[in-house]
Simulated assay, not measured.
Amino acid sequence: MHLVGNMYFLYIIGDNLEDTLGRGKFILYYTLCGLGAAVAQILADPNSMIPMVGASGAIAGLFGMYLLWFRHASLTFMIIVYQKKVSPVIFFGFWILTNILGLYLANESGGGVAYWAHIGGFIAGIAIGLLVKKKVFAANPLLAILNSHEVKVKR
């Protein structure tokens, strides 16, 4: 389910970010988010002998960029058959709370998910998103207009 969830999120937000950044920068920022995720996990648990495998932290970094640049978009929140369109702030707010809860529960039970990698990747994505936001908006005027305070998007 973890892999399915990662692929779903990459499918939903990855194409918007790749269209915005171009293939090369998308891969570069994705990789940097993955490195940030790995660093966060290593710093959180330096004595761990469990190898890290996966792309969750890098995808979490994409969440951070998406949250900054597509804040008026709507994402589908799903639980089995229940679906609801929500803003990225609500969607990723729920996601980060789920990871914090998972981190707490993993400390109690031992876990097996690199929650710090998720959180570290998300923070790396927000940092990258903030650093390049002006350039991204300059290269994508429509995205800049959609993020301006004067524009209100009706749902």
Rank of each mutant, 00 (worst) to 15 (best):
R71E: 07
K152Y: 10
Y82H: 04
E150Q: 12
N47D: 12
A144Q: 09
V4Y: 08
I27H: 03
V132W: 00
I12K: 07
V53L: 07
M52Y: 11
Y66G: 11
V53A: 08
V132P: 02
L146N: 15
S148E: 05
L101E: 10
L62E: 06
F91E: 01
L28A: 14
P46E: 11
M78H: 08
K85N: 14
L43P: 02
A117E: 08
L130H: 11
I13A: 05
I90F: 05
S148F: 01
V151R: 10
T98Q: 14
R23A: 13
V86H: 04
T20H: 02
T76W: 05
M65D: 05
F26Y: 01
F137N: 08
I96G: 15
F122P: 04
L131W: 08
V113Q: 11
F70K: 02
H118F: 03
A37M: 01
G125Y: 00
V81F: 14
F26N: 03
K25Q: 12
S87K: 06
Y8D: 11
K134C: 04
L143F: 01
A117Q: 14
N99L: 13
P88A: 10
T31L: 09
F122Y: 13
G111S: 12
P141R: 05
R23I: 09
I59H: 04
Y29N: 02
N140E: 12
G54V: 03
Y29C: 01
Y104F: 15
F26A: 06
V86T: 04
G22Q: 15
V89M: 10
T31S: 15
G121E: 09
G121I: 03
S87N: 04
T98W: 13
I80F: 07
P51E: 10
V86R: 04
A106W: 07
P141F: 06
T76I: 12
G61E: 05
E18S: 14
L28K: 15
G24S: 14
T76H: 07
Y30G: 02
F137Q: 10
S48A: 14
V151G: 04
I119V: 09
